[in-house]
Design a protein around this nucleic acid. Sequence first.
RNA 1: CGGGACGUGGCGCAGCCUGGUAGCGCACCUGCUUUGGGAGCAGGGGGUCGGGAGUUCAAAUCUCCCCGUCCCGACCA
Length: 472
Amino acid sequence: MAKAPIITPQAEDFPRWYQDVLNKAELADNGPVRGTMVIRPYAYAIWERMVAEVDRRIKEAGAENAYFPLFIPESYLQREAEHVEGFSPELAVVTHGGGKDLEEPVVVRPTSETVIGEYMSKWIQSYRDLPLLLNQWANVVRWELRPRLFLRTSEFLWQEGHCAHASQHDAAVYAERILRDVYEDFMVNELAIPVFTGRKIPQERFAGALNTLTCEAMMRDGKALQMGTSHELGQNFARAFDIGYQDENGGRQLCWTTSWGVSTRMMGGLIMSHGDDRGLAVPPRIAATQVVVILVKDDDQGSAGDAARRIGAELTEAGIRVRVDDQASTPFGRRATDWELKGVPVRVEVGPRDLADGQVVLVRRDSGEKTPVDIAALSVTAANMLVTIQDAMLDAATQRRDSATVDVMTVAEAADAAATGYARIPFDRLGESGIEELGRTAVTVRCLQTADGGLPSTDDAPGTVALVARSY
RNA sequence: CGGGACGUGGCGCAGCCUGGUAGCGCACCUGCUUUGGGAGCAGGGGGUCGGGAGUUCAAAUCUCCCCGUCCCGACCA
């Protein structure tokens, strides 16, 4: 029996589709204060997987976790001119505490360069203390004018790395290392989201940075999403917070600092990169539930239910993240669509009919393909299928992106291409006037690349290519 | 913050123009029958209509102010 669509089709109204997925897959709700977000358990479990995988890579890159306070003296922000200017409009400021006015207002951190800079200054004395590689997992607050769940909320969860280096070269190398070995590697290999990596133009840089490197993904509506950034802060913060050291020759030097972050925005990216008209689709490696064992219907003795639970235990034993849905009182079709909505990569259907043949049915969320499998071979087949799905999802996402990325030579062509995806245009063909012209239709330069897709070392290196698109 | 749309049980909506204190679908609860792709029947519970002020004998319906949500724009992880 054909039913009305469960969620608004993407082609009909993409923003509404996004809202529907958020609601129906039980991912998030608006908080009571404007712009705030409640992350529901199913989404939070995925976030925890993201945290685990990013954290592992951060530690491999040599950084250590620490924690700095939520409250920052307002005066700290003011020490770096561009930084204050950039963040002032979106600060939450506490002026009252303990029943009286505070002598100095404190801001709720919008990012922690300033406090961490203050402590780096205390902790670094010698070149032997460098590099100092710190990271913290925290919540930050930026009073956003136009919030959207996961993509831009007034409070969000993230990881912020803050490092001090002895030289500009060391800082640049590390900023790029984080971009590649932590962010790009994580996004491509865990989230199955291909990203363009590149350099931000001055207008798009982090407030107070010399250079901002970015990972830009493409959502299924053709709009770009900035998934993560890595900044070279030069000596701006080192100067403002007196982060310095004594070198081998006894000379006094200023440090070169970097900062880098990814946030719960990645959840939004995950949803909009892989989701389809049946709901969310989570790549197996990041899925909190990789396989759902669903009891189609039980028999009189309850032996099918027992079999389903036993199969669940076997899959768990094999190292797969499993949930068993044996709520046989709810009709099968209902539960099947619910798990598809939540995007669980593989569904194992267990019912009396299959069991009689010693089989179960595996169903892929990405392709919908159904495969009968002998129970004896289930663990191995399921594990292989998860690998196959991971690869297939990355391939599909890469194909979608590449087919919506066009090389052009004029601003008019770029505007045209950006209506549905990315346009690549030689940067000198774009120029300031081109940037402004595209800006009128909300098309912006997402990043700059060298001709072969590498990272340009300056803003105006010859042969630089600009990737332009509409963005979130 | 500027422009637009909207706010009625958990969700989606009707009612508002032509004031007379609330209705539908889904969801939820109970029972029975069902269960291999969003089950059926029967019986139930839940809202005072985003908030406030006003007009009126009477306001979900009219007026004003405020708040919130969504879309577009400027800003951004």
